[in-house]
């Protein structure tokens, strides 16, 4: 126990250094926000300056009306929430049994999951579309959600597995003593414990789904009313020109939900097993 004052000073020093770095980190976002209220001349004429010379709020109304954002926003939320829920549930379940149970085929599953992580997925959209067509899932939100929630997400399974492998056995045993069955143990003890992982998976899946472009595009070819925000942003990039300020406004609108989600979930990022064990 050296002088506690010095440790506190040290922490403030850390904060100051980190804040300086963080400013550089968020600068481009501030730039996007400021671009969203500039006109094209303002964006390209004032370079790095953040303060708009004239405030062009109509960029937002243009994004909202022209790009049909209200409808796209609803679609995006629906598709993204559906995908995130499926991903969390199925990946947590799979990660749990992979980490804590020995069963036939387990090693094979882990091996195949790990190996397929490295396959470039850029072309998967072609066979996925063919499959969805055969199964009659094209042109529906359900088909889109399944495709988004089904492909990849090996990372989520691995993160859950890595986490559950570290959970002390005592917790489970205590649950069994209390008479909890398999499902109950998982739902009541294990899933809540993995808050930090769930928060991570939710944020990352949300992000990936929200910004995904080609799958939502293909699944809404003949149902334009089902399009998502990322697809809706098409309208800003034309053959010979891009509506930069409209795009910036649309981008600012579309990243609000993700930022809000991150702010809400971030307490889970610093909340560990230890606390749960005590309570």
């Amino acid at each position: 126990m050296r002088a506690p004052v010095s440790r506190r000073t040290l922490r403030w020093l850390q904060t100051i250094v980190l804040s300086a770095v963080a400013l550089a980190w968020i600068y481009p976002l501030l730039w996007i926000l400021s671009a969203s209220v500039k006109d094209a001349t303002g964006i390209f004429g004032s370079g790095l300056s953040l303060w708009p010379e004239s405030w062009q709020w109509e960029n937002y109304s243009r994004a909202w009306d022209e790009a049909g954002f209200a409808r796209y926003m609803v679609n995006s939320v629906l598709v993204t929430v559906g995908t995130v829920v499926i991903v969390v549930v199925r990946c947590a379940a799979a990660g749990y049994v992979i980490a804590r149970y020995r069963f036939v085929g387990r090693r094979l599953i882990v091996g195949v999951l790990a190996a397929t992580m490295f396959i470039p997925t850029g072309l998967f959209v072609v066979p996925v579309v063919e499959l969805s067509d055969v199964l009659g899932l094209l042109n529906s939100h359900l088909g889109l959600i399944l495709a988004l929630a089904g492909g990849g997400h090996v990372a989520a399974v691995l993160l859950y597995a890595g986490f559950y492998a570290k959970v002390p056995k005592e917790l489970e045993e205590a649950a069994v003593v209390d008479g909890a069955g398999f499902l109950r143990t998982f739902l009541r003890i294990m899933l809540p414990l993995s808050g930090p992982i769930t928060a991570t998976v939710v944020v990352l899946t949300f992000l990936a789904t929200w910004n995904n472009f080609f799958l939502p595009l293909v699944f809404t070819f003949s149902t334009p009313q089902n399009r998502t925000l990322a697809v809706g942003m098409l309208a800003f990039q034309g053959t010979n020109s891009t509506d930069w300020s409209g795009l910036a406004a649309a981008a600012s609108l579309s990243l609000l939900p993700i930022l809000a989600l991150f702010l809400v979930l971030q307490r889970y990022f610093v909340e560990g097993i230890a606390g749960a064990v005590k309570s």
């Binding site: 397929t116 396959i119 072309l123 998967f124 072609v126 499959l131 399944l146 495709a147 929630a149 492909g151």
Partner: peptide
Amino acid sequence: LFGMYTIWPS
């Protein structure tokens, strides 16, 4: 899901 959306495309 893995079979449909990863193995099959692979």
